[in-house]
Design a protein around this nucleic acid. Structure first.
Lengths: 293, 293
DNA sequence: GAGATAAATGAAAAATATTCATTGAACATT
DNA sequence: AATGTTCAATGAATATTTTTCATTTATCTC
């Protein structure tokens, strides 16, 4: 009835803009696609496209199929990949999603010993998700989610794997550099440099500045940790980073970590997985590896 | 390459126990299934089943396919249904999931005016989900989730639609029946009757008894509201229910609502949907209808 | 060991998908 | 306004794939 080819055609026509172009991509003729879809339309009794002149515009049913296609086809394609991997004796690809910027550096330190120990497992890391990390887990886009925000809901399993402290990083010459810790008020006249994420997800905002009702003088956004720290070292601003990450740059750059508040900001990294997967050996091994680090 | 039929075969063989039996269900011959799967195995280069005598046992690859099949086939089947609905001029089926027991009564009051106003939309209500309500939303098992626990994550949209108070319900003769409100300690010697859900999800526990460190004398579990209230009326115990629900039974049964704590327990019902769907007219209309109630 | 049952297999038949060749409509260009 | 181009639809022919049929082989049961 409704077959994979129909979904492929709907998706490709939408992408390429015409049946003819889609046919080229799919290595078929325009006629083949036309016949295939005509037949589906007859079987279902509803049109997929409105034929407006020589343009195809999706009907409501067509839009529904398109959404279905974009959801299901990637999963089927991933399945084919995986079957071929099994054939080659490989165990599969562990697909890891990331929701926090600095986690990336930490993840790298887990991945390399893991790859050595599991030579027949590939690792792939994704950072962008249409529906967030949780959605990507549920949609089988990823197998493991690295995140600071666990979510204890049926179907998912989250486990803390790493504790760290979030600290302020300043240049060595900065007046705050020598302080045992900083108070929110002391940042009111500073330039704050962060990764480009929503303010609500920045701990320095929602756990430090906002409770005190303070805003920094300015807020700059930088993608990469190196550049961010170079900006800090040159006195252009201050940043908030995990202590372990800051310490890795301590020798190389003129930066100093300073505690945020009297007690510091404690953070955790969690690994999330679907409950159906938590017993998969190579996945479990990754979580173990992460916890031991 | 990997087609729907392969997934159907894997699923049906697992369900029926043999190729032959699966062939009957699928209206094909055993030979057809055998050829189809052989071909897939050759293309992919990996076996789906281990042939142990005349038994088929799934390989790792096969198990993976089975999981895929149980995830994707229902979605394709639902899609076919929906296309046929579009054909008949119907708009589709609004599939509603429920995570809270008493919400059902409330939902009924929303559904009937909605059905009247949207004659070409069907409504279906589901109450059991393998991966919880959130998972069901992400997996397109349901379109709308009725829940007291919203979840503000990318990809999902939650909206409060109904405020109510959770109250204690006792028999008219009960000593607490005349009190303006009850304190947790006063329930220490009572029999508490609740719906059969995990204790952590019962508000009377986590917002009333647990903070005070109190447990009831006994805890009984009952499925249906009517029976629960009959038990209460006959003095066998007390229950916690929404005030509006309790009030509906006030005339019919000898029960009395009593406030929980000096300030009462305030609750909200939320409707959750996928962000991709929030602009669908008949879904939006349902949310509006719910809010107006 | 006989009978029954299940899967595999090769060849034949049936069904389906695809192409080819063509048409007619819509659009772009002059 | 005429012309050439592009695109989707269509019917018939062809190619491919799926399915069946008939049979074999292996295993399980009694």
């Amino acid at each position: 009835m409704l077959e994979k080819i129909h979904l492929s055609i709907v998706r490709e026509v939408e992408k390429q803009g015409s049946l003819t172009a889609a046919a080229d991509v799919l290595c078929l003729t325009q006629s083949a696609l036309s016949h295939a879809m005509r037949k589906l339309e007859q079987k279902m009794g509803t049109d997929i496209w409105l034929r407006e002149g020589r343009r195809l515009r999706l009907t409501q049913a067509g839009k529904y199929l398109l959404a279905l296609a974009e959801r299901l086809l990637p999963q089927m394609e991933r399945a084919e990949e995986r079957l071929k991997q099994y054939a080659k004796g490989e165990r599969g690809t562990l697909c890891i999603g990331m929701e926090c910027h600095p986690c990336y550096q930490w993840l790298l330190k887990v991945v390399s010993p893991y790859l050595a120990r599991w030579p027949d497992v590939d690792v792939d890391v994704k950072q962008k998700f249409q529906f967030g990390g949780i959605g990507a887990l549920f949609a089988y886009e990823i197998d493991l989610l690295v995140t600071p925000d666990p979510l204890y809901k049926p179907g998912l399993h989250f486990e803390p794997v790493f504790d760290y402290e979030q600290v302020l990083v300043t240049s060595r010459e900065h007046p705050l550099a020598q302080a045992p810790y900083v108070e929110p008020e002391q940042l009111a006249e500073e330039v704050l440099i962060t990764y480009p994420v929503e303010i609500e997800r920045l701990d320095i905002y929602n756990r430090f500045l906002m409770p005190a009702g303070i805003s920094p003088r300015r807020h700059k956004v930088i993608e990469t940790t190196e550049i961010m720290l170079q900006m800090v070292a040159s006195g252009r601003g201050v940043a908030a980073l995990p202590r372990w990450l800051a310490e890795e740059y301590l020798g190389k750059m003129d930066v100093v970590p300073v505690r945020l508040g009297r007690c510091g900001i404690a953070k955790q990294i969690f690994l999330g997985a679907r409950v159906a997967d938590v017993d998969v050996d190579y996945l479990k091994a990754f979580v173990d590896q992460a916890r031991q680090l």
